[in-house]
Design a protein around this nucleic acid. Sequence first.
DNA 1: TCTTGCCTTAGAGTTCACTCTAAGGTTTAT
DNA 2: ATAAACCTTAGAGTGAACTCTAAGGCAAGA
Lengths: 146, 146
Amino acid sequence: MRYSIQEVAAKTGLSSYTLRYYDKAGLLPFVARNTAGYRIFTDGDLVLLHTIMCLKNTGMAISDIRRYIDDVMAGPTSIADRKALLTAHRAKVLAKQQQLTENLREVDYKLGLYAAPDAVTQVQGELAAARADKAANGLADPYPAS
Amino acid sequence: MRYSIQEVAAKTGLSSYTLRYYDKAGLLPFVARNTAGYRIFTDGDLVLLHTIMCLKNTGMAISDIRRYIDDVMAGPTSIADRKALLTAHRAKVLAKQQQLTENLREVDYKLGLYAAPDAVTQVQGELAAARADKAANGLADPYPAS
DNA sequence: TCTTGCCTTAGAGTTCACTCTAAGGTTTAT
DNA sequence: ATAAACCTTAGAGTGAACTCTAAGGCAAGA
């Protein structure tokens, strides 16, 4: 199957602007053109675009994705570089994932506090502690009158 | 304890520029000043700053963090809004976490392929498939000569 | 044929979150 | 007293990733 830029936009959720931006950035050197210069995407292109989105969604910079695509275009000789690129990226994603989990636990803690039957009392306790901390340091109370 | 902006920068890993930027954005209304206008952070402030960083690290926009801080300053009456804010945020973080896990699986799949003993053969297979897809659609081969 | 709706490009504009500069005031050590 | 090392502000600059505009070419239906 052949797809126009709008069809690919609909399929992927990316805007046509973003697709052209990616092409300009060197991420889509494999996309063909018709005689008028219109882009023609194939199913194979969508597979590669999926990989690009997978890397982007995990926080890889456009410039690094470009390096990966350059590797793909270069064929099997670039396997070592692809491995280095993805190994480094994997480590970063793993670290981010762990931090996300930790931070989510804190958000859950706060939510538990706000959902508790004595939420008002607990929040008042927090506020009192914050005020006491300011007072202990001889500083004005920044919190509005209770 | 009282801390200068540089001490807080060292403790948190944020730059003093970023701390001032956050203050300008309304994220640090609780930080006191001395007679010269210098910011004085306390341990209680660091706890709140930790919460701010937790929200930021999970991808919350500065404007939403500001809304949360406004809620904290307002005291117990804002508990409902805090709950709404964090519940919506929690859902987004959870979705991001799941997508990250899925995408990481794909990266791992690629890495496994590149680490395999027959990596060259497999990558050549991918390349052949991409070429066949182009040919099946009557399009030129964008991949350099093998 | 002509209109409507695609597509193209170059390049300008936007948003976000910083990051830094300039000009000047404060504090500390000698 | 004065230099060095802090701090302040307003506002300009940066970089990333879009997002859009303008001007124009192409394609399909009435």
